[in-house]
Amino acid sequence: MSAHVDSNIEYIQIIKSEFEERKTKNPAYSLRAFAKNLSIDPSSLSSILANKRALPLSKADSFIVKLKLDTDKSQAFMRSLLSHVTKKTHNIVLEKAHTIEGEDYFDIISEWEYFAVLSLTNLSDFEPSANWISNRLGISLERGSEVFNRLVTLNLLEHDGSRYRPVYSNIKTSEDVASTALKKAHLEEMDLIKDKIINETVDRRHISSLTISVKKESFEKAKTLIRNFRKEMEACLETESNAEEVYQLAIQYYPLTK
């Protein structure tokens, strides 16, 4: 069965348009020559143009340069590619998301070390020892042991026969509901950010802000944009193999006016 090319997948249309333009100038110009110019295997390029596979994100910058796209087209290309690549991943994440709430999970939600340890288990060199955990997170041996054991006790972390792994591929908390645990978690995030600004080198962190004038009714749109961006970050980065570090993305959007 042949794949249908969705006209909304703009980056594919941009690639196809460039190919057609080159063929117009040179009728003998082939897909093989086009693929060679883009430094990609011809069969892979054919599959991408037929929407049988997505363009690897690692090749996006190279394609933008070699297709000589201007700023507007470059941005449209990246937006479309990210949306295409992450769409299926978003659906999988939503299907497997496990919601935690209630008193049993208050500490898990409110204290940053718990989610950090869950992510640590994805690292290629993970060791289920308090010493290793405390060294990687900069916490005490006692705290490392406490966090790890509580995750196991609450069935959020299990041993699959070869190593410890999270029981759920994605864990989420309640949204748009006032929560003491979440308030505590966000305040801890602020303390972490302060510490990283002072003690972490600039080549290992990125902190920026934006101040804008908006309409009151744009708040829900802003939240949707932020949530989609978080999903794209997770889909694009956490699927990488041989992970070496655990990072946290913290986003705040709040009014400066009364």
Rank of each mutant, 00 (worst) to 15 (best):
S74A: 15
K87V: 05
I64M: 03
T71E: 15
K87N: 04
P56I: 04
K66F: 09
K73H: 13
K73F: 07
L55I: 04
V65C: 03
L55Y: 07
R79I: 06
A76M: 05
D70T: 08
K68W: 03
S74N: 14
S62H: 08
H84E: 11
S74T: 06
T71D: 14
I64A: 09
D61S: 10
K59N: 11
L81A: 05
D72S: 12
L82Y: 08
V65P: 05
K59E: 14
K68V: 10
D61P: 08
L57E: 14
Q75D: 14
A76S: 12
M78N: 12
L82M: 02
L69A: 07
D72A: 12
S83M: 00
L55W: 11
A60Y: 12
K73I: 11
D72W: 07
S58H: 01
L82F: 03
S62C: 02
A60P: 00
S74D: 11
D61M: 13
S83L: 04
K68T: 06
R79T: 03
R79E: 14
F63W: 05
V65L: 12
K59M: 03
L57C: 10
V85Q: 09
S80Y: 04
D72E: 08
Q75E: 15
S80M: 08
A54V: 12
H84K: 06
L55K: 10
F77D: 07
A60Q: 14
K68I: 04
L82R: 13
F77K: 04
K73D: 15
A60R: 14
K59V: 06
A54N: 15
L81T: 04
S83I: 02
K73L: 06
T86K: 09
L69T: 02
I64K: 15
F63L: 02
A54L: 12
P56W: 03
L55A: 14
A54F: 13
M78H: 09
F77N: 09
Q75H: 11
L67A: 00
T86D: 09
P56L: 09
S58M: 06
F63N: 08
A54H: 15
V65M: 13
S83E: 06
M78D: 02
K59L: 13
K68C: 08
A60S: 15
I64N: 07
A60D: 11
H84P: 02
A60M: 15
R79C: 06
L82P: 07
P56T: 07
R79D: 00
K59G: 01
V65H: 13
A54W: 09
L57R: 04
K73W: 10
L82E: 14
K66W: 06
L69F: 06
F63Q: 00
D72K: 13
D70H: 08
A60F: 08
K66T: 03
I64Q: 11
V85H: 09
D72G: 08
L69N: 05
K73V: 01
L82N: 08
S62R: 11
F63K: 02
K87R: 00
T86Y: 07
F63V: 00
K73M: 13
K59T: 00
L55Q: 14
A54K: 14
S62G: 01
K87Q: 03
L82S: 08
D70F: 07
H84G: 02
K68M: 12
F63T: 03
L57M: 07
K73G: 00
S62L: 15
P56V: 06
K68D: 12
R79K: 03
S58A: 01
D72V: 15
D72M: 07
R79V: 04
